[in-house]
């Protein structure tokens, strides 16, 4: 499988051709669908949301700004918002995400920690370094789409413990990302 790298995304932004998009599709489509099925979507719903996400990528590629985060995180937020709209909110009002507002305002994010360079590898490593209990809470939230209350029920722990593990996981992640950047 061909790699989705910064150059390919830049080329696709400039030329918007089907050949480059096929590489993006082949890399992300199975991953988006798999994440959706783990978060409770059935096969047909996962396929619909994946298709909607890929259509959004095609239509909104000009809005992606590499200074504000990795391409993968942009794809993830589109898939997440489509999932929210279709599966959880059951609303005809589309979810207004910060990325849409940011595009309108054209603010610079000023993020130092999330520059494109090898971010994906560093985040993967930073997650691996999380203590097991914190990592479990993060997985249940990000992969299985469980609310804090549902995680508390699943793990049979108080909701305050879920919150504190999430806080600790974030602090540890941030620390790990800085260490790995050095």
């Amino acid at each position: 499988m061909l790699e989705v790298n910064k150059d390919l995304v830049k080329k696709f932004q400039a030329e918007k051709n089907t050949k480059d998009f096929e590489v993006i599709f082949n890399y992300f489509a199975p991953r988006i669908k798999s994440l959706l099925m783990k978060s409770g979507a059935d096969g047909a719903q996962a396929e619909d949301i994946m298709h909607d996400t890929m259509i959004n990528i095609w239509e909104k590629i000009h809005m992606y700004n590499p200074d504000k985060g990795s391409f993968s995180s942009w794809v993830y937020t589109i898939a997440r918002n489509n999932r929210i709209d279709l599966l959880r909110k059951k609303s005809s009002q589309p979810y207004t995400d910060i990325s849409e507002v940011e595009i309108a305002s054209d603010n610079e994010s000023g993020l130092e920690i999330v520059e494109q360079k090898s971010i994906s590898a560093r985040v993967k490593k930073a997650i691996e370094l999380l203590p097991l209990k914190q990592r479990k809470v993060i997985e249940l939230s990000f992969v299985n789409d469980l609310t804090q209350e549902e995680i508390a029920g699943e793990l049979n722990i108080p909701i305050g413990t879920v919150k504190s593990r999430m806080r600790l996981a974030y602090q540890k992640m941030k620390h790990n990302l800085k260490e790995l950047q050095a």
């Binding site: 669908k33 937020t77 993060i138």
Partner: peptide, 21 residues
């Protein structure tokens, strides 16, 4: 924004590193 962006990178990593698929 920075905290949320780190969270988004975390979510993206979970999506990308789904070994089974």
């Amino acid at each position: 924004k920075e905290i949320v962006q780190i969270g988004n990178e975390l979510g993206a990593s979970m999506m990308e590193n789904d070994i089974e698929n």
